[in-house]
Amino acid sequence: MALIAIIDDDPDIIEASSLVLKSKGYEVVTASNPDDGFKIVTENNPDLIILDVMMDEPDDGFFLAQKFKRNNITTPILMYTSVSKTIGFEFGSGDMVPVEDFVEKPISPDQLIEKVKNLLK
């Protein structure tokens, strides 16, 4: 079964997301800051990365996504966002942010599983 890395600074979100994914049989590794996130991805070589857009700084999720691409890590990334509408970003195009898909918090288990399945195809 596929391995998924979850990088988010909110332990409750990590917990809930992990539980949902594990219940469907996925394996999960987690990190709560960009540095640890980079480490678990390089060490475990997951099939999918779930990445929160905002951790210590308002957009360090973006920077981490860019860092992955710069280091030739082509693992698909699903980005968690929370305030896309208020900060005016038109998400959906990967040109500016090198990620495969976005999902806006709060996320329902069904929605998460569907997005994950799509990206793992």
Partner: peptide
Amino acid sequence: VSMVAHELKTPVAAVQGFLKIILDDSIP
């Protein structure tokens, strides 16, 4: 305002995540 929105939404997302898991019969 966008910072406030983010800060307000984060706990809501966490709570909703937990509640949906509790309500979802497919997640044991």
